[in-house]
Nucleic acid binder design. Sequence first.
DNA 1: GATCGAAGGCCGGAAGACCAAACCTTTTCT
DNA 2: AGAAAAGGTTTGGTCTTCCGGCCTTCGATC
Lengths: 248, 248
Amino acid sequence: MDEAEERIATANTLTPPEAVFAPVRSQTAFEETVDRLGTAIKLGLLAPGSQLPAERELCGRLGIARSTLRQALTALTQSGHVFATRGRGGGTFVSDPQPPADPPSAEMLAQWRETCDQRLAIELGVAVLAAERAERGDLDALDDVARTLEAAIEDFTAYRQADIRLHVGLAEATRSDRLVRDMTEAQGAMTDLIGYIAHPPTVLASSNAQHRQLLAAVRERDAMRAVRVMSEHVQATEHILAGLLPGG
Amino acid sequence: MDEAEERIATANTLTPPEAVFAPVRSQTAFEETVDRLGTAIKLGLLAPGSQLPAERELCGRLGIARSTLRQALTALTQSGHVFATRGRGGGTFVSDPQPPADPPSAEMLAQWRETCDQRLAIELGVAVLAAERAERGDLDALDDVARTLEAAIEDFTAYRQADIRLHVGLAEATRSDRLVRDMTEAQGAMTDLIGYIAHPPTVLASSNAQHRQLLAAVRERDAMRAVRVMSEHVQATEHILAGLLPGG
DNA sequence: GATCGAAGGCCGGAAGACCAAACCTTTTCT
DNA sequence: AGAAAAGGTTTGGTCTTCCGGCCTTCGATC
């Protein structure tokens, strides 16, 4: 016992991780709401033309006051992501021609590697849990998305859209809301990073082959194979970024 | 092209993930600070008796006002986690006999499975990236921790402490601050969950065998083996919880 | 055609969180 | 004795958020 305590004591003498004292990011409810809805729109999870829940209902679901929600909606209206119509039968809708994405910010670029690391973690977790929990219907739907993906190899915008649906759909198949949220955030960050770089069809084709293998592994409940494929899939993107971004 | 667009349109007709409209948790700076420091102390990352940075420096590092930091420190003082001495050479220190952990809250228990899912993801990501990036020195230090772990098999408190150091240490070896932060949060949540359940030495012994295999795999840069071992390691805990908590 | 109801669009006050910048008190080191 | 370094205190102001009521629009229904 003395021996154990001594080892613990020496182990604890190590300096604490500096992450403990890193800045706290206290996002306001307003910012977080703009982010949530804006990301969902950018990713196409809220389709162009689709209607958002009524303000009086949505603020309840988001757990914020209606005035705060309206601030967020005003911001999204001004940035051209949504528009509102009044009167009965009116509502807030996702704009049809989405505004062009804005270029990645400096701090976004500075943290791109950590963003990829975090994404890798989420994707691997999703791969394992989807292999355990995905049901037949989930996989059939994902196969549809994969087919869409293969048909869109020449149109990067359409491709990216379907790609997101596939990854988020896999997260949904884990039945874990938290992983869906994390996946959404991660894909939003990735979109910011890769939106401006070229993706030749050959790259997309190889990506599609991985999607196929991934879904096959999940269908066979082969978690480890799913992880291997997913790891290669994600790190392929990372290698592309490494060649184009600073610090690569 | 028409074909592709049509498929995308049908794919987007699906209902958006309800996670999009889930409540926003806008934690205040005060809450987040209490959480960060409190978790670091509970996990032993800030050792009993060790000194925190001076208030005037710490508030700068955390990016908050001193008065806000003091609110957090006051809360931690009242809960018995830290104490302060005045005058030159004084400071804020981690209390030596730590207050007993409080039992897991209801919502904590309600979300235990999602908590485990998220932890699994982070641990898998850490396993892969540590296998790629860990350096010799990191691994030697982790071997030390593993030895501590094996000597502490009869004392769950000491065991848990070293266990945390091992997992967080592995995260540090990825050189990704964000993963360190996520790992810390995940381990904090796990501590809340498992603090109150019995862990017979046989379970800890089997856990230790997995730690050994994990470190060996990382040392050999065998990412896939590291993932497999880590997955089994994490899911073993999950199975224990499943037998004891509601909804298992 | 009048009315109802559901939706977005306002406004004003109250409460609280956060910040900034002082100043005070205690203790130790020089 | 005094300077320095730490925690402790006070004050005032800004910004965010909430609550709740009210207004305006306009399709649906009677």
